[in-house]
């Protein structure tokens, strides 16, 4: 059973329905005991980094998230849930993250020419260039299209961490993979067949 962590930020129904659509049982929970029993854990998230981290803390989820990661069970971070894994974010002042990986969350630089195509947020379908084929990316072609909506990107200190890169003004890590942790800046639950394949693969990941 997959536990989707509910800390009061964002649309968790889509993530849950996405897993169910590809045959994986998934529950939305903020109970540490349920996260402990789960075979897989998902940290989603939309909105501002600081608000997300504040809610994770308020609901007493910092320790349970660390425990889930240390237990070695497959762990998926999505969007702000991906960003939270890093040291800190520059969004609306400096905010500390969970610090699983060293790295900073930075604003996508705005191009000087406002008439150019670089609008912020980076919103829509963009390609992922696969550098390191993480298990959840099985059967997914490099340069597949996935759905993004974000204004900040992750700059990991460890250059080996990114699993895919995407270009938008900067070349940024659109997903990372290390051991049991896979995390995406894009939204698999909104990325139609490609995204559902990621969710399917993640649920099958041991």
């Amino acid at each position: 059973m997959i536990a989707i962590i509910d800390y009061g930020m964002g649309n968790l129904r889509s993530v849950q329905k996405g897993f169910e659509h590809v045959g994986h049982e998934a529950v939305v929970t903020r109970e540490p005991a349920v996260m402990e029993r789960a075979s897989h854990v998902v940290l989603p998230g939309v909105g501002a980094f600081g608000d997300c981290m504040a809610n994770v803390t308020r609901f007493g989820l910092v320790e349970p998230i660390h425990r889930a990661i240390q237990s070695g069970k497959p762990f998926l971070g999505i969007c702000v849930g991906f960003q939270l894994l890093f040291t800190e974010s520059e969004e609306f002042g400096c905010h500390k993250g969970l610090g699983i990986f060293p790295g900073t969350v930075k604003a996508i630089p705005l191009s000087d020419d406002v008439a150019s195509s670089y609008k912020i947020p980076h919103m829509g379908w963009n390609t992922i260039h696969i550098e390191k084929p993480a298990p959840p990316l099985q059967n997914i072609d490099s340069e597949s299209y996935v759905y993004f909506v974000h204004s900040y990107y992750v700059e990991p200190a460890d250059q080996e961490l990114p699993s895919t890169h995407t270009e938008y003004g900067v070349s940024f890590a659109s997903s990372i993979w290390k051991d049991n942790i896979f995390a995406t800046q894009f939204h698999p639950e909104k990325s139609q067949t490609v995204g559902l394949q990621v969710l399917k693969n993640f649920g099958e990941w041991q």
């Binding site: 129904r13 329905k17 759905y147 909104k190 990325s191 139609q192 995204g195 559902l196």
Partner: peptide, 8 residues
């Protein structure tokens, strides 16, 4: 819709 369609 959200149960059937996985797009924004």
């Amino acid at each position: 819709t959200a149960e059937q369609v996985f797009m924004p």
